[in-house]
Design a protein around this nucleic acid. Structure first.
Lengths: 247, 247
DNA sequence: CGGGAGTTTGAGCTATCTCAACGGGGGTGG
DNA sequence: CCACCCCCGTTGAGATAGCTCAAACTCCCG
């Protein structure tokens, strides 16, 4: 009956949302889920639309953005496979506070609000898990808020790249290539800056061989150095003085 | 057995966390809760402490702050009666990401992590409610993140005061007095600015009779004007030109 | 009647934004 | 297959919001 393939079920079962549920329970929950495909650049939902659907991303990648009344965009987060998005759907009568746009071709599972509440009553573990996921997410968002409030652009950019690295990247020789297609503008919108400033900083880092920057593609050569920029008071301008690694 | 007074139980039952639970269920849940008192300026918990307790504030007020490695503080949010705090306790093995300091004498109920999970399995509604509370909170935090990323200090400050007004304030004649004891420094830490800039903006607003600013006390005279500053491109500098209300 | 915490205000500085102009590569249509 | 075009990126120069530091001021409290 369910159109979910068994391997996918395995993966989903060990996802934070379904932690502690039996395989057959997960399977039964997913009978209510509708597979959805969305092509690159298309939207799962748009800001201010009535929020009725919650999604689990199976593969692809998604950019969650908020638009200000005067047209500026802010990138709230990137979503990678097995993550939840559109959680506002759990609130009755709300609107999506942001838009979800595919940055690659995506497959996802869709749950409707009317089912979510019911399912969580039947499988309390799922509700507890969802609670914990949101706690963690709030926590992460708080960290980024603190960053934005206290750190300069260079450090925020370093944090952003490191975060993207952890979320989704792969090695190619000595380089760690970020899997996320990222225009300068996108990076700027993630850290509350401008594409010009981002471009300048990336150029500077590239000239110090910390990264390799390309068209909508960024690779990290020296993540540890970036880490130092992100955390301590080391700026790329200072790198000449302390050429390579000391703790 | 339970040390909770009946009136308090009434109030709690209609709290977002206990929505939809029967009175006796709430009562049974609260048998696991331990009343806690904390005096003004003392802490419920501190950042980096192992997170084992979740609280429901009964009365008083709390300031949740995060400290950066280099000693700067950021005020994450103010907590008012019947709100939940310390939710990280729901995650096993975590640390508190922030400190919770009483800004007034406080009473709260304390739940321990080992009980939380159990209770949520028994009363799924509580888990669903907790999930929804966190969804809402993430949503609010996202809004503030967007503000911080895109708006200038003056607008952020206006937003902050309006938010404080909604959370906890009372009328005194023509004025709306904020119930929160707020030093300029605190306001600055809420909006990612400095006490100097905050002081300057408040002075300017006061000279336009939008507010009355005192020592750790602020009252709003023209919330609608503040709203316009917060939302539109009206700055206090422009107020002379548009002396009073038009839509 | 100090003393100190909280606040105000001035003056200078700088990180970052803005605007404008140019560059380059790759996809597309002729 | 070539050329053009468009999108993305770079770089410079100038403007500025807001930060920093320093100093004075005002309450409140003991």
């Amino acid at each position: 009956m369910s159109p979910i393939r068994p391997e996918m079920l395995d993966a989903l079962q060990h996802t934070p949302l379904f932690q502690g549920l039996k395989r057959e329970e997960v399977s039964r929950i997913l009978e209510h889920a509708r597979p959805t495909r969305v092509e690159t650049d298309a939207y799962f939902f748009r800001q201010a639309e009535p929020a009725g659907r919650l999604y689990i991303l199976l593969n692809g990648q998604i950019k969650v953005t908020q638009l200000t009344p005067d047209g500026q965009q802010v990138v709230m987060r990137m979503i990678n496979p097995l993550e939840l998005f559109g959680c506002v759907a759990a609130l009755s009568g709300g609107e999506y506070p942001a838009s979800a746009q595919a940055t690659k071709d995506c497959e996802a599972l869709c749950l409707y609000d009317r089912d979510i509440h019911k399912l969580m009553q039947i499988y309390p573990s799922m509700a507890v898990n969802a609670f914990q996921i949101m706690v963690k997410r709030t926590h992460e968002l708080q960290d980024r808020y603190r960053e934005l409030a206290t750190e300069c652009v260079e450090r925020r950019l370093a944090h952003a790249l490191l975060r993207l690295m952890q979320q989704s990247s792969h090695r190619e020789g000595d380089l760690i290539v970020l899997d996320t297609p990222l225009a300068r503008q996108d990076l700027a919108e993630m850290i509350g800056s401008t594409l010009y400033t981002v471009s300048r900083i990336l150029s500077q880092w590239e000239s110090h061989q910390l990264i390799v920057a390309g068209r909508e593609k960024i690779s990290l050569a020296e993540p540890e150095q970036l880490q130092r920029i992100a955390e301590a008071q080391v700026f790329s301008a200072d790198l000449k003085k302390a050429p390579l690694g000391e703790a």
